[in-house]
Simulated scan of single mutants.
Amino acid sequence: MNEIVHGVLIIGLATSTALMLLGLGLALFYQRDLPTAVPNIGDVLGRVAALRPSGFLALGLLVLIATPILRVVGSIGAFVYERDWRFAAITSLVLAVLAVSLLFGRG
């Protein structure tokens, strides 16, 4: 299970890096200034579909943020599989704190 969780981290990092490099390359190609603010989450996919550099950069950041969250979810699965209920409960609490932070942590 640790190898799967490790693979998720590597894939998340590689995907995030590729998206940010693509956004940077598009900004240089179209000779646009790099964005100074992150767009709303709802606008990101629209910007990616329009091949706007800010969309790829923001999506890369979102993937980078989601990667450790996926690791926590994977760890819960690993602890449940190993029937280590104490660590599964602690890791679930960590996931709950992350979820609350994402929902209410604006600005």
Rank of each mutant, 00 (worst) to 15 (best):
V97N: 10
Y81C: 08
P53Q: 03
V80H: 09
A88D: 11
A49G: 05
V73Q: 05
L51V: 13
P68A: 08
V44I: 11
A96G: 08
A88E: 11
R47D: 13
V48D: 06
L21M: 15
L95V: 09
L28K: 14
L9G: 14
E82D: 13
E3S: 03
I90K: 08
L22S: 14
A78F: 03
L59N: 00
N2I: 01
W85F: 12
V73M: 05
V48K: 11
L61F: 01
T15A: 10
G77V: 00
L98W: 02
V80I: 12
T67H: 03
P68H: 11
R71I: 05
E3L: 11
A49F: 14
Q31M: 11
F29I: 09
F79N: 12
G25Y: 11
W85N: 11
L95N: 03
M1Q: 05
T36Y: 07
G55P: 01
S54H: 00
I41C: 08
A96P: 07
D43W: 07
N40F: 09
G46P: 02
L21W: 04
V94T: 00
T36Q: 12
L19F: 13
I41E: 14
A14Y: 08
A27Q: 07
E3H: 07
L13Q: 02
I90P: 08
L62T: 10
L26Y: 10
L61K: 02
F56E: 04
I65T: 09
R32P: 01
L13G: 10
L22Y: 13
A66V: 06
G42Y: 08
I10T: 14
L28H: 09
L102W: 09
A50S: 13
F87D: 14
V97L: 13
R52K: 15
T67N: 10
A96M: 01
L28D: 07
R47G: 07
L64R: 06
V100G: 12
I65N: 13
G42F: 14
S101W: 12
A50R: 05
R52W: 01
A89F: 12
S54L: 00
P53L: 01
G74D: 09
L61M: 06
G77I: 02
A78C: 05
L57N: 00
I4V: 15
F104Y: 12
G60Q: 02
V72F: 06
L9Y: 10
G42P: 14
L51P: 03
V94W: 00
T17D: 10
V63W: 05
L103A: 15
A88P: 05
N40E: 15
L59H: 06
R83W: 07
R32A: 12
S54P: 02
I4H: 10
A88I: 09
V80S: 13
I41W: 06
V38P: 01
L51W: 04
V94E: 00
A18L: 15
D43V: 00
G60T: 01
G25S: 15
